[in-house]
Amino acid sequence: MEIEETLLPGVGIRYEMATRAGRAIVIVVERDGGVQVGTYSADDPDQALECIVLDADEALAIGELLGAARMSQRFADLSREVPGLESARLPVTPESPYGGRSLGDTHARTRTGCSVVAIVRGDEVISSPGPAEPLHVGDTLVAIGTERGLRTLAALIENGWTEEVRALCAGPA
């Protein structure tokens, strides 16, 4: 797969890609965030046809639609490449003690060895969140780690740092 990127001075960036199915797709991302998506005419290989014009917010919504779906897929691919590494999507439920607190408060890394690599909030994805990133009820944490670590992390997010969760950490695998 090859995406050709050309600068359009004063306008933005133009991306061109030939899909495996044999169609050419051209995307112009304008500086103000507006996007035009088109394909080429059969008679004139250089003329973009059927241009769909998207405003910045529309383009963002579609980008996130494509991006969020790809995100979990990418982590699945990643965990397939490294033996023993798994990924999980963990919801922050209303019962969770961490709703309204920061990611750092969970001490997820120290306690379970898992990394929270992204937070999905509505149609927004916060990738590589820092410890200060606040968690809200309804967020979904995307985490990678060992299977056991992830199980512990799920319990930790759900119940807090309770005796049971501590036992999960220390107990047999």
């Binding site: 004063g10 133009r14 304008e30 088109g38 250089d46």
Partner: peptide
Amino acid sequence: IARLLGDLGRLANRETPSVLSVLV
């Protein structure tokens, strides 16, 4: 010319980068 290309819907055309490059 920049306005013209936008009005005529030619921003995504393959010849447009060369036009804009000449202008720059």
